[in-house]
Computed example of a mutant assay.
Amino acid sequence: MSYTIGNKIALVTGANRGIGKSIVEHLLANGAKKVYLAVRNTASTGELEKSYGDRVKTLRADVADKRSIQALAEQATDVDVVINNAGILASAPAIGADTEAALKNELDINLFGLLNVANAFAPALEQNKGALVQLNSVVSIRNFSAFATYSVSKAASYSLTQALRETLAPKGVKVVSVHPGPIDTDMGAQAGFDQVAPASVVAQSILEALEKDEFHAFPDEMAKMFGEGYKSYADNFVTADLGGE
């Protein structure tokens, strides 16, 4: 069933820049009533607050801190849509002195952050028959050795996203897994990509996936290439009803 953002209340983690900021702008442009800006640094959302006034509200949140996210959920009990955009890239290879530390750091944010958000907001999303959107990546379905630990963390978050879909869908909650390729963000620059897509394509793909009742969103050209190659497997094994096996 189609799900539109009009008149909904949303919350976006990592909302102050890059993809997160673009998501906020698209939500509001498409009729969202209010958007909670969940960020670690509450001074970083001034531009959005100036542009949108009382249609946005900044709340402090650290997705890696379970207590912080529980407190966040207690302040946003009216939320209809939660978009977990917060993530980090440590860019460590599979073998190296920094590999273990990088992986632990990425798992704290990219995996346990999603776990914290999902657990804290599930009651509100179930009550409001809402939606949970997780920002994963094309590297969640294919490890790139230059970003080995990041790929591992995103593969884990994608696996968890699949479990969340099976758990929450019967309770009326839509779950979307977003898999961008290189995007024009600070993280994209950190990764050293020359050809990048604008963050707006990610935001638009989320709205389209919700409207079309699709689990996967592959926003940009590289992502679409991955999506086409992955489609048969996804249709037959990821989104298919396998009887809980």
Rank of each mutant, 00 (worst) to 15 (best):
L27Y: 14
T149H: 01
S157H: 05
L11R: 07
I95F: 13
F144N: 13
E208F: 08
H179W: 00
P219E: 01
G31T: 09
K231S: 11
D213T: 11
Q70Y: 01
D62E: 14
T77Q: 15
A76M: 10
F237Q: 08
G53A: 04
A197Q: 02
F147K: 01
P123S: 08
A131E: 07
A163I: 04
V56A: 05
A94G: 14
N41G: 07
G53S: 12
D54Q: 13
K129L: 08
K104V: 11
G46P: 06
F215G: 05
M225I: 12
F121L: 01
G188S: 09
Q162E: 15
V81W: 10
E228H: 13
R55A: 14
S51G: 05
L89H: 02
V79L: 13
N16A: 14
R40E: 09
I23D: 01
N119H: 14
K104H: 09
A90G: 12
G130D: 14
E208S: 11
G31A: 12
L135W: 06
G46T: 14
F193H: 12
A90L: 10
P198S: 06
T45E: 00
P170H: 08
A61H: 06
V63M: 10
V139E: 00
E49K: 14
N116C: 13
A131I: 04
E49M: 10
A209Q: 04
G243L: 13
I95L: 15
V39L: 01
E214M: 15
G192T: 12
V12T: 11
K21G: 03
E49H: 08
A64K: 08
N236R: 12
G53D: 06
Y36S: 10
F112D: 06
N41V: 02
R165V: 05
S140N: 07
G172H: 07
Y233R: 09
K224R: 15
A102T: 00
A94I: 14
A29F: 02
N116D: 11
A223H: 03
Q204T: 11
N41H: 12
L111R: 10
R40M: 03
P198H: 08
N7F: 07
V201D: 04
F218H: 02
P123A: 07
A94C: 14
N116Y: 05
E228P: 05
S159Y: 00
S68Y: 00
F112Q: 11
V133M: 04
L28S: 11
D241V: 08
R40V: 03
S205D: 12
F193L: 12
F215I: 01
Q127D: 08
G14V: 05
S22F: 04
D241E: 15
V56K: 04
S137A: 15
I141G: 03
Q134V: 13
T239N: 07
L107F: 12
A94F: 13
A209M: 00
G96S: 14
D78S: 12
R165F: 04
R67F: 12
G87F: 00
L132A: 03
L107E: 05
T149K: 01
A102Q: 07
K33V: 00
A155N: 03
L72H: 05
K171W: 09
F218M: 02
V176T: 00
T99V: 11
A15T: 05
L28Y: 09
V139C: 05
A240F: 11
L210P: 09
A156L: 04
S151D: 02
Q134G: 03
S44I: 01
V35I: 06
D220T: 07
L207G: 06
Q127P: 09
N30G: 01
A223N: 06
H179P: 08
V39C: 07
